[in-house]
């Protein structure tokens, strides 16, 4: 195929301990490390491997968000993407708006495959890929742990509750990635230097004429109700006694 589009979301790094702002308006992000959503990083790695096997010619990384997303796109370029597109907006972007904006890029670029993470680790919505596939009227294969391309088709192994499901889909298609699809490569310093010269195009979200009306309004953020630390027992007898006392074991 000619090209693969990979979607990269800028999120709070997975190692950061999340704290809710005391006024409930969001989580604290000031001075917090930001990264590519780990699932999207897996999507990019898969796209690069497909290109390296000679099954695609170009990998285009796309992000939606504030100008700072350029950092994550540069990281994607350093990993090996050929060029990048930032759809810039200062507003929060709901999955449906993201899908509509991505559809504009997909219509322009005509990729053979769109790869993105199954969910972002910030809002955990798990929607954008499915919504893009619906709007594009193309197949979707979510939660992929294995992806094989053969001519105009992809065979995708999906991690589902019952085990592993295998789908065959016609291309172009949307595939969302699960954790075990691959292990993303590390970026090397010379690649970071090279990435600075790769093309990064910026488009204003407003210029894409996408309906961005709010459909799910975020009202307030709260800390979860934590479980409290219980008691420690010193031996198996005590453990069995507790469980029998509560009627959980006989």
């Amino acid at each position: 195929m000619e090209k693969i589009i990979v979607c990269l979301k800028r999120v709070v790094d997975y190692n950061v301990r999340i704290r809710v702002r005391p006024d409930g308006t969001g989580v604290m992000t000031d001075g917090v490390k930001m990264s590519i959503n780990p699932f999207d990083e897996i999507a990019l790695e898969e796209a690069l491997r497909i290109r390296e096997r000679g099954q695609a010619k170009e990998v285009v990384a796309v992000s939606i968000g504030p100008a700072d997303c350029q950092q994550q796109l540069r990281t994607g370029l350093a990993m090996g993407a050929d060029r990048a597109v930032l759809i810039e907006t200062a507003d929060d972007v709901e999955p449906l708006v993201a899908a509509r904006a991505l559809l504009r890029i997909v219509e322009r670029e005509q990729p053979g495959l769109v790869l993105l993470g199954k969910q972002a680790i910030d809002d955990d919505n798990n929607q954008t890929g499915q919504m893009l596939a619906a709007l594009w009227n193309r197949p979707q294969a979510t939660f992929a742990s294995r992806l094989e391309l053969d001519g105009g088709r992809a065979t995708v192994t999906r991690e589902v509750d019952a085990g592993l499901e295998v789908l065959s889909v016609d291309l172009p298609a949307v595939v969302t990635t699960d954790l075990r699809l691959n292990e993303p490569r590390y970026v090397k310093l010379p690649d970071i230097m090279k990435a600075k010269k790769k093309p990064l195009e910026t488009l204003a979200l407003a210029s894409l004429a996408v309906d961005a009306a709010v459909r799910v309004r975020s009202l307030r953020y709260a800390e979860p109700v934590e479980r409290t630390k219980g008691t420690m027992v010193t031996d198996v007898d005590a453990l069995v006694a507790v469980l029998r006392d509560k009627g959980l074991l006989n």
Binding site: L96, Q130, M131, Q140, T142, F143, E159, R215, V216
Partner: peptide, 20 residues
């Protein structure tokens, strides 16, 4: 995984968001 796969596709066809 059944609902997570399916419901966003339904929502998009209806032109609405989804509460995940």
């Amino acid at each position: 995984t059944f609902g997570k796969d399916l419901m966003p596709r339904v929502a998009a066809l209806l032109g609405v968001g989804q509460v995940s």
